[in-house]
Design a protein around this nucleic acid. Structure first.
Length: 803
RNA sequence: GCCGCCGUGAUGGAAUUGGUAGACAUGCAGCACUCAAAAUGCUGUGAGCGCAAGCUCGUGUCGGUUCGACUCCGACCGGCGGCACCA
């Protein structure tokens, strides 16, 4: 027997599989479809890291398993190629992003192939290619022409270092997601997608998907649906009214002042009527030039000024109350104005204390004996109403309804979700397919001009204006087509636009007439299993769901959710337990591991580390365990004999074999690869102890291992006389009759503590088992004459004697 | 602060309609093979007590439910992730 040589075997089979196009999706097949998708990577210059390998190996195992179980599987791979890092890299090196992208995707593809991952490369896509972004542009126009994309002025997040506008989702606690620089706010005209129109569907349809609970909750929180009411407050001696949004109508009698956001339009409207006009103007100017971040980060300290000389009227008790402008009220949420209830809202309480405003308790905690008039602490729960006129004594729920009717308020639902800002002042993205006429009015670029090509005569250096604005070619192109005085849109699209529909393209990647044909979409979508890191939950998943809902609304598709089942792979931490990062110098390079130990070992190791979704630290020492496992299987070859009977002479081994088939199958189905491998190790350990291994048993072992370690399995399959690829074989079946044992171990406990065990044959009755337990010498000794009070028998498992 | 998840040997982890805690693997120790090393194989490996048979304790802490709790309930402690003045 030759020594196990992973390099030789892996090279050989990777070449052979490519030659045979073994993993190409069968177009003609009438087998049941299954679409297994990885979140496609951004092909960075650093290459693949060990974290990618976890997710890709997991889906590969599942893919191979599904194929062996008779499914027609779509398992594609592509590149999220547009984006800031490629452009930043281009700026640094002077190379065109197109060339660097080409280079890095080539490296990624090679690395992925060296892992033996069974993607159908004939369907590879890359978002930076005109054949692809043509359809990204088509989607933009689809949204625009259906009123779902609009251009508007907005206070937007601006990164001074990246020189671009960012989406809210790309701002992490006030800092740029990419470069970690602080974000400032600018007022600019930008393109938005109206994702807020789908807020309810984005919440409701989460009920129908099989996703990790935490991800579903994160999505819900991000959308932030909140049901409440709008209530109008009159202003004394004025035509103006203040509309506030509240979720606590029951506290209306406790409203002792009103607060407007500094940007609230009414502030300007009321300026004429107030006595401290200068002070208010100065305050508004100061607060609104600050970003939201500065307002919160520099101090959570609340401050504000009163609009002196005007009073609002509380519609519930008709009392006159003061009006403030304050920094703690947000313009963009609700109506930009609030009714302050200092006794029952922490923020209002804090502000009222500071400015010395009155605090009136109107809801009392029923479970506690709150002291009358005790407003030293805020009570934000619901309870029983006090100081609320005829509503006294009602509980919060009832009062909500009654008071709302009494003041003629309207029910209203608000959301935290805001429209998606998609324009970017950067080069390396899909150009927005819009041109402006002489009056500056936007027009769609007619579909026949798509792809609307990204010009090449541009400097990448960020200047704050879009690089495309410099392109003579682009300006000329527009004037040629549309006429003199017309000018191009010079912003590009956020890369999240590209990734919001790529999973459709895989169904029909070469289609030149549509983003994907109706039949191919119907055939393959939705995605049956989607795998990716949890860090993408809010951003990408929300946008992809939004696009899917748009398509459904416009009758392109007839399903509502793109990803039926979603799972996250956990992060691989460095050996020191910290995150792997370049700056810490603790990165493990997968290429080195593959070279030293082999791809099969790498795959087994990463899957054996622990539960797929958990974060776990890398441990190079532990890789040897995976390697030894493969070598043990390899060495078992010597013991293989082609015995006549398919049933192994060794009954115990036969039982174990069938148990293993069963467990490995169900574990793969549940993505519990660590325990599947552990079960196979148990089988291998047992086979090693036998003097002879039946050929049929060994072949089954090789088939079970095949999804995990495809190269060595293929090699051994061939050595065992297999003619076709093991990966095309049917998954082995187990026989339940081989698993059922003739005896089982009964554990005898006294008061829940294990005292003895015995083997009982399956035909013993309950009474016989109890009797047998009591008669055991050891049990008699332990009982030492004490009378059992009760004897509990759990079928086939336990006898518990209670004394 | 709010929401969600998690806490098991030296280490990664296994075990949940409540039923033998620590499977499998790594490490470590001893032995075999070897001139030697590597590789491989065998044995041991939660803690304490005991010559032994065996006993006691043990799944973050404290309490509860139960014949029986890693598993269920309550409070607390610690860690991770997300959101964060959203009215």
């Amino acid at each position: 027997m030759e020594k196990y040589n992973h390099t030789k075997i892996e090279k050989k089979w990777q070449k052979e599989w490519e030659k045979q196009e073994l993993y190409k999706t069968d177009e003609e097949s009438d087998k049941k479809k299954f679409y297994i998708l990885d979140m496609y990577p951004y092909p960075s210059g650093e290459g693949l890291h060990v974290g990618h390998v976890v997710g890709y190996t997991a889906t590969d195992i599942y893919t191979r398993f599904k194929r062996m179980n008779g499914f027609n599987v779509l398992h594609p791979m592509g590149w999220d190629a547009f984006g800031l890092p490629a452009e930043n890299y281009a700026i640094k090196t002077g190379m065109h992003p197109k060339d660097t992208t080409q280079k890095t995707t080539d490296i990624f593809r090679k690395q992925i192939q060296h892992l033996g991952l069974s993607y159908d490369w004939s369907r590879e896509i890359s978002t930076h290619r005109p054949e692809y972004y043509r359809w990204t542009q088509w989607f933009f126009l689809l949204l625009y022409e259906n009123g779902l994309a609009e251009r508007k002025f907005a206070k937007v997040n601006w990164c001074e270092s990246c020189k671009t506008v960012l989406a809210n989702e790309q701002v992490l606690s006030g800092f740029c997601e990419r470069c970690k620089n602080e974000i400032v706010q600018k007022n600019l005209e930008q393109w938005f997608f109206k994702i807020t129109e789908f807020a309810d569907a984005l919440i409701d349809d989460l009920d129908d998907v099989d996703w990790p609970q935490s991800t579903v909750i994160n999505q819900r929180n991000w959308i932030g649906k909140s049901e409440g009411a709008e209530i109008e407050f009159r202003i004394q001696n004025s035509e103006f009214r203040i509309l506030v949004f509240t979720t606590r109508v029951d506290t209306l009698f406790g409203v002792t002042y009103i607060v407007l956001a500094p940007e609230h339009p009414l502030v300007a409207g009321l300026l004429q009527d107030i006595s401290n006009k200068k002070e208010v103007e100065a305050y508004v100017k100061e607060t609104s030039t600050k970003t939201e971040l500065e307002r919160t980060a520099e101090s959570k300290e609340k401050n504000g000024v009163e609009l002196r000389g005007v009073k609002a009227i509380n519609p519930a008790n008709k009392k006159e109350i003061p009006i403030f402008v304050a920094n703690y009220v947000l313009t963009h949420y609700g109506t930009g104005a609030i009714m302050a209830v200092p006794a029952h809202d922490e923020r209002d309480f804090e502000f009222a204390k500071k400015v010395k405003l009155s605090i009136v308790e109107v809801v009392r905690d029923k479970t506690r004996n709150s002291k009358a008039g005790g407003v030293a602490r805020v009570y934000t729960g619901s309870g029983q109403l006090v100081n609320s006129g005829k509503f006294d004594g009602m509980d919060s729920g009832e009062a909500q309804e009654k008071i709302l009717a009494y003041v003629k308020g309207k029910k209203k639902t608000t959301y935290k979700l805001r429209d998606w800002l998609v324009s970017r002042q950067r080069y390396w993205g899909a150009p927005i397919p819009i041109v402006y006429d002489k009056q500056g009015k936007p027009h769609s670029i007619p579909k026949e001009y798509l792809p609307w090509l990204l010009p090449t005569d541009v400097e990448f250096k960020p200047t704050g204006i879009s690089p495309l604005a410099e392109s003579k070619e682009l300006r000329g192109r527009v004037e040629n087509i549309f006429g003199k005085g017309w000018r191009p849109e010079v912003d590009t699209m956020d890369t999240f636009v590209c990734s919001s529909w790529y999973f459709f393209r895989f169904a029909d990647p070469k289609n030149e007439k549509e983003f994907a044909s109706h039949e191919q979409i119907k055939k393959w979508l939705p995605v049956d299993l989607y795998m990716g890191g949890a860090e993408h939950t809010v951003l990408h998943l929300m946008y992809a769901r939004f696009f899917t809902k748009v398509l459904e609304k416009l009758k392109y598709i007839d399903f509502k959710e793109p990803f039926s089942k979603l799972r996250h792979q956990g992060m691989i931490l460095a050996e020191d337990g910290r995150k792997m990062s370049k700056s810490l110098g603790n990165i493990t390079n997968p290429d080195e591991i593959v070279e030293r130990f082999g791809a099969d070992t790498m795959r087994i190791y990463e899957m054996f580390m622990g539960p797929l979704a958990d974060s776990k630290p890398w441990n190079t020492q532990n890789i040897m365990g995976a390697r030894r496992f493969i070598e043990r299987i390899w060495r078992l070859q010597i013991k293989v004999k082609n015995q006549k009977s398919s049933l192994d002479k060794n009954k115990e081994l036969d039982t174990l074999l069938h148990q293993t088939i069963k467990k490995v199958g169900s574990d793969i189905e549940n993505l519990k690869f660590n325990t599947a491998i552990s079960q196979m190790m148990i089988l291998v350990n047992a086979l090693e102890k036998a003097t002879v291994v039946n050929l049929s048993s060994y072949k089954i072992l090789v088939q079970l291992v095949a999804p995990f370690a495809p190269h060595v399995a293929e090699e051994l399959w061939q050595k065992m006389g297999g003619t076709d690829s093991v990966h095309k074989k049917e998954w082995p079946q187990f026989d339940e009759s081989h698993i059922i044992a003739e005896t089982y171990t009964i554990v005898v406990q006294i008061n829940g503590k294990v005292r003895a065990k015995f083997e009982a044959s399956t035909d013993l009755s309950e009474a016989q088992i109890k009797e047998k337990s009591l008669s055991m010498e050891r049990i008699r000794k332990c009982l030492s004459g004490k009378k059992p009070q009760r004897i509990i028998y759990v079928f086939g498992k336990i006898v518990n004697i209670v004394v």
